[in-house]
Structures are given as C-alpha cells and as structure tokens.
Design a binder for these strands. Structure first.
Lengths: 336, 336
DNA sequence: CTGTTAGCGCATTCAG
DNA sequence: CTGAATGCGCTAACAG
C-alpha cells in the first residue's frame, strides 16, 4: 500500500487551481489559460509529479500497454521484431508487456489471461516459423496482429515474409554471378519456409532465359549447423556436382562452410554459399562472410506497431496475410 | 473508452451478493461462507469475468508489473536472464514490462519515466558487461536489482557472476587434462570480465602444485569471432607454443577453431579449446563441440526475481554485489 | 459471515 | 476559462 509520489491534487493545490484545471493543463487541452497552464506546469515540475497511469487508464479506458506474446524468445526471430515494435511504439508512449509461452499452450493461455487482466490496448503474436498458427479468435476486445508466423484464420491480420520471393532472389543472384548447379540444403520437409523457398528457386528457373537457367536439388533436413555440415559432406561424398549452395538458415550455412573447409573446397571459388536470416553474429565474421537474405524483422515489428497504433485509434486492421519482401545482403561467399 | 467485459458489480448482482462480498470471494479470503464463495465463483465464470488490474492496483497500490531495463536485448545476456526471471515471477502474479535502452542514456531516462508512470512494483536492470554501471540512485520508490552488470554503488543490490572463479575453473580443467601451455585470447584490456578471468587463471597457477602448473599468455582484443581468428593465426605465425587456448567468448573460440582448421592444427589433440558463455548455438555444433563456461544467466534472473518478490513483500534487498559461480560444461574440444 | 461506506488518482461532464 | 461533482472498477475498513 505504498503511496509516495505526489498526485494531481498536490499539484493543483500548489498551483492554486482545481484538480480539473490541473488535469487539463497537464494534458495540453485548449480550455486553459496560458498563464494557468504555466503555473500548473511549474508546480508539477517542482513536485516531480508523474501521472499515475493506472488511475488514468481507469477513467480513459486505455492502459498504454501492448502485449507481446512470443513462442521463442531465445530464437532468432522474436527479438528483432520486438525491437522494431518498441521503436515504433516508442513515440506513442506505449510500453510492451512481454511473455514467452515457450511453445506451451497452457502457458500461452495463462499469459493471455494476464494480458486481459492488465487490459492491454493491443496484442502482437510473434512466432518463429512461417507455418500458420491457430488463431486466437475474435473474442478479445483488443486488436491483434500476428507477426512472422501468420494466423491460420484469414479474418485475422498477419504480417510475414514472402519466402517465395526470397528464394527467387537468391537463385537470381547466383545465376547472375555465373552459377549453374545449386545444392539447396533446407529445413524439414513440410516446413512452409523451406518449401516456399524451393518454390521461389523453381519460379526463377521457370522465368529465366536459357542462359541463366540453373539446375538444383533440394535436401530437406533440420534447422541446425550439424545438418548443414552433414548434408554438405553427404553431397560431396556422393559426388553430387554443384557450384553453389543455398542454405535455408545461417546456421546451416556455417555447417556447410565447415564441411567445405574440411574437404578442401574453396568458397566462393569452387562453390558459392548463400543463406537466409542474415544473422550478423553468424554471417559477418564467417570465412568468408556469408551472403544472406535479411528477413527485415525489425521492419515487420515496426509495421505491426503502426497497424496496432492505428487500430487502437479506431482504424480497423486489414485482414489477411500481408507479405513483405526480404532483401539480399551480398558478401564474400558468393563473389569470386 | 472501450468498456466491454463484465465487472465485479455484474458478478455480485448475478450471485445475489454485495460487491464487497464478491471481491472477497474471488480473492479467496476467509471471511466468506463456502456456499456464497461457490455462488460467486459460478457467477464469475458464467460472465467470463476477469479482474481489472488497473482498478485493483489503484486500491491496493500494487500493479503486478515489474520493469526490465536492458541495454542489450540483442546480445547474449539479457534474454536468458529475462526468461529466468519470468519463470520465477510466475505469470499469474507478475508480468514484465520490457524496455531496451540500447546503451543510450536519453532512451534509458525515457523508459524509466514510463516505468514510473506505470507504477511498476520493482525494477530489474540488466547489462551485458560485468563492468559496473552508474547507479540509478535511491530516489525511486520501488526496489531495484542490477543483474549481470553490477551497480557502482555498494548501496544497491547487484547480482553477477564470479569471473575470477570461472577463470580458475577453466585453468584447472585444462591442467587436470594434461595441458601445460595456455594461450588466453580475450576481450579488450580494461574490460572487467577479461581481467577477472586472467586473474582467475593466475590464481589457479599460484595455488596448484608444481605438477599441474601451467604457463599462460594473455592477448587482449575484442569480443568477436574475427579477433579469435586473427589472434590464433598471429600466435601460430609467431611460433608461440601452446597446447590449450582459453577464449573469453564462444565467438572468439569459433574464430580460433577456424584458424586452427585452416592451419591444420587438430583440436583437441594438438590444442584444447575452451571458452566462456556456453551459447548452445555456437558451441554445441562446432567441430569439435566446445567446452564452455555456463554463466548461469537464467539462474541469475531467477534469483533477481526472488529477491524482488521478497522486496515487494517488505524484506529489504541485500546491499552489495553478490556473485554466483559459473559452471564448466565439458565438450569434445578439451578431451582427447 | 455480509453489506455499507469510503476512497485509490485521474478525466470528464456541466454549471458557473 | 475554471471548478465542483461524478464515476472508472476494485479493495478495505467498519458496522451489522
């Protein structure tokens, strides 16, 4: 029951006005004389007055809190999204209530419950895969945006990345730089991201003229460095011919790079290596540095924040899945 | 001004009791007849009633919100700490308001301000280095714990890792497994973590009997894979003799490993490699997997949460810097 | 055991 | 332009 800081009443008293006037003055409403506004301001300053948002939200109905529900805080995805969102919200003075369900439905339900208790103004649901997730439905009375992992309901608003386009871009880059035979090392078969990218590669092949046409072969596996290494070794062992490798994550690429080094295959001369995620940590200091697709996650977070801000203001959220194009960051691993 | 969900008054009416009784019933207070408690419960259930924390906190003085102020969300440190804390706070009771100052003092001040406005119950200040940071002072009316990065004021409560002990442990492990000449590749000279670990190594040497005594040489540089690689190459080029390398981060170790592979030095046979951070991503799938010191960050977060929970309950925070011992996770890079 | 009465701190009518 | 009154949803005394 701690109640230390000064309240509006204190400010009002010191300024010699009523609480109502003080409130108006501090909230920059027109109906206050400039002189009194100043007096109130000074009083507030002097008392180090800080609005009590709990109290304020009780009367305004807004908390200034946005919930962020994630399933993989540890992973590569949530964080950049979160930071982008924080940026975009920052201006509006909204803060982010964080919770990590860790892929557990029970946990998720509990966290959602606290969100409701806290009367959050809006919710961002972030996932680490592009496979659609169960919708939270429309029974919540705050706007919800799904980021990266889209909702399976088309009535919801989802923001994600166009992996087909991303695959296309990588294939294009490799073809343009003279590669012709591509080994595609990816995640699990059935994983949307993996399959979309493969489709993107195919799409490029279909569209490109004969001189740029490349052959490719896709190996499904798992999202790990270990898999990248063994897939590369396997291909070498089987005598598969290739002059380029597309790895569906930077981790996979690191594994592949390692395998090539061990087998004396030089990168980028004998084989180009390109990957997805553009995780600086893994990609920038690799030898050679790895060309990688940046998923623009922070941008996704910013977009989500903007949409939600608007939604709080009354603009309805645009339903459906909205895809953003990723962009290729070229580094030494594909340039000979 | 959205006001959708049912309120306590609705529940009370439906249950045929007063609001006060309904409140008591839902809060599991003794002074309510079991039968009425049940009736109220059912009414609440039926109306899908959810407490409004804003309102509640207005009368209790507690918000159930803990602030987390970090300077490097992206980095390796904040996240595990955050997750540990989330665990310990238990989602039902406390939620975490997140903010990343990104090393910017202005941003930090702004975020602190919103924290105050939100009337958080407690604050966790997390940093990514072990060099002390400026104290936030004692003018805030909520308890503050500094995690990983300690406060420079001994009046504050800080939780961090004992890097001297960590350095000691690594040296001990290497000596016990038969290594005698250690190359220590670390971060910037002046960085507390780097220097503490060097001291730990020295401490081990001083304490150990002659048969285990090892020689070592410390190279200060930066916290990057690139530096690990070049430091290793440099040592090799200069003909420095060593049969073990201690890298002060997993990233540095990856660089060193890479350099050894390039120069045909086998790990662990010709040289052992050990590092700090135990970042699964970097360490588990390396070839060979890297022995690394786990900083127990999640545990640090849990401890902080417990201390803060107690502090909210009235127990004063223990002032001073409290160090936790890290633990060594042994993998293939040091076992021949 | 239960209900009545008072606030918690602020924003918002609506008279003056 | 200003202020007195009212309510946001809930908990905390205090009577009954």
């Amino acid at each position: 029951m701690r109640r230390p800081s000064s309240k509006l009443a204190d400010v009002a008293k010191l300024a010699g006005v009523s609480v109502a006037t003080a409130s108006k003055a501090l909230n920059d409403r027109k109906e206050v004389a400039p002189s009194t506004r100043l007096r109130v301001r000074e009083a507030a300053q002097q008392l180090a007055f800080v609005h009590n948002r709990q109290a304020r939200s009780l009367s305004t109905g807004r908390t200034g809190i946005v919930g962020l529900l994630t399933s993989d805080l540890e992973g590569r995805f949530s964080l950049p999204i979160l930071m982008g969102a924080e940026d975009a919200f920052g201006a509006e003075q909204t803060s982010i209530l964080l919770s990590d369900a860790r892929g557990d439905a029970v946990r998720e339900a509990r966290h959602l419950d606290t969100f409701v208790q806290q009367r959050i103004d809006a919710l961002m649901v972030v996932g680490s895969r592009t496979d659609p997730r169960r919708s939270l439905g429309s029974s919540y009375d705050f706007p919800i945006v799904y980021v990266y992992t889209p909702s399976e309901s088309s009535a919801d608003c989802s923001l994600t990345i166009d992996n087909v386009d991303a695959g296309f871009k990588v294939a294009e880059h490799l073809a343009m730089t003279g590669r012709r035979r591509v080994l595609h090392i990816t995640g699990p078969l059935g994983d949307t991201a993996a399959m979309d990218r493969a489709r993107g590669i195919d799409a490029f092949i279909a569209e490109s003229d004969a001189s740029l046409r490349l052959g490719h072969r896709t190996n499904y596996g798992e999202w790990s460095e270990r898999w990248g290494r063994s897939a590369a070794l396997m291909a070498i062992g089987q005598g598969v011919e290739f002059d380029a490798v597309i790895c569906d994550s930077d981790q996979i690429a690191r594994g592949a790079l390692d395998a090539f080094a061990a087998r004396g295959i030089t990168v980028p001369d004998e084989a180009a290596v390109a990957s997805f995620d553009n995780w600086e940590l893994l990609v920038a200091d690799a030898s050679p540095p790895i060309t990688s697709v940046d998923m623009k996650l922070a941008e996704l977070g910013r977009q989500a924040a903007r949409l939600l801000t608007d939604a709080i203001g009354g603009t309805p959220l645009p339903a459906g899945v909205h895809e953003t194009n990723a962009s290729l960051v070229v580094r030494g691993s594909t340039l000979r």
